[in-house]
Simulated assay, not measured.
Amino acid sequence: MTTVPSPCTNWCDINPENGYCRGCYRTLTEVADWSDFSNAEKLEVWSKLKKRKPQTTE
């Protein structure tokens, strides 16, 4: 069985304004519980990250 990879970017800093890590955009609970999550739970977190990440204009 393949394990869903962590979105961690090794920049761990929780933004106090929204509660998301500035590196991977997970919540502190999601970061702490990642290793205990099932693959389905990990995929659910991944699906939320794009919405959480601020969009940049080029």
Score class of each variant (00 low, 15 high):
V4I: 15
W46R: 06
P5C: 04
K53V: 08
K53F: 10
S6D: 07
V31L: 11
A32P: 00
T57W: 14
P5K: 08
W34K: 04
D13L: 15
N18I: 03
Y20A: 00
K48S: 11
E41N: 04
T9L: 07
D33R: 12
L49R: 05
E30F: 01
P16T: 01
G19P: 08
M1V: 14
A32S: 13
P7D: 06
L43K: 14
L49I: 11
T56K: 15
A32V: 10
N15D: 12
T9A: 07
T29I: 11
E44N: 12
E17H: 09
D13V: 14
S38Q: 08
V31Y: 01
T27C: 06
V4D: 00
N15V: 03
C21S: 08
P54R: 08
G19D: 07
K42Q: 06
P54V: 01
C12Y: 00
N15R: 04
T29F: 10
T2R: 10
D33S: 12
R22A: 12
V45H: 04
Y25S: 01
K42V: 00
W11H: 15
Y25A: 03
Q55S: 10
W11R: 13
E17K: 10
E58R: 11
K51Q: 10
C8L: 08
E44A: 15
T2Y: 13
V31W: 03
G23D: 10
S6F: 03
Y25T: 02
N15W: 03
R26K: 09
N39Y: 02
E17S: 12
R52V: 01
N10Q: 15
P7L: 03
G19Q: 07
W11A: 09
S38R: 06
G23N: 09
T9F: 02
V31G: 00
S35N: 15
Y25K: 00
A40T: 08
V45W: 02
N15L: 01
Y20D: 00
W11S: 11
L43A: 14
R52G: 05
T56V: 12
P7T: 06
R52K: 05
Y25L: 03
L43Q: 13
Q55E: 10
K48Q: 14
S6K: 02
W34Y: 08
M1A: 15
P7S: 07
P5Y: 00
P5M: 03
N18C: 07
L28K: 13
D13T: 15
V31E: 03
T2E: 09
V4S: 04
T9P: 05
E58Y: 15
W11I: 12
E30A: 00
D36R: 14
W46T: 01
L43S: 14
E44T: 11
T27M: 02
T3N: 11
E44K: 14
G23I: 06
K48E: 10
I14F: 04
M1C: 12
W34P: 00
G19H: 08
R52F: 07
L43C: 09
T2S: 12
S47E: 11
K42S: 04
A32I: 13
N18F: 05
M1I: 14
L49F: 05
N39D: 13
K48D: 10
S35C: 15
K53P: 02
W46V: 04
C21T: 08
E58N: 12
L49C: 05
N39T: 05
T9Q: 10
L43I: 09
S47G: 11
K53N: 09
P7M: 06
E58I: 09
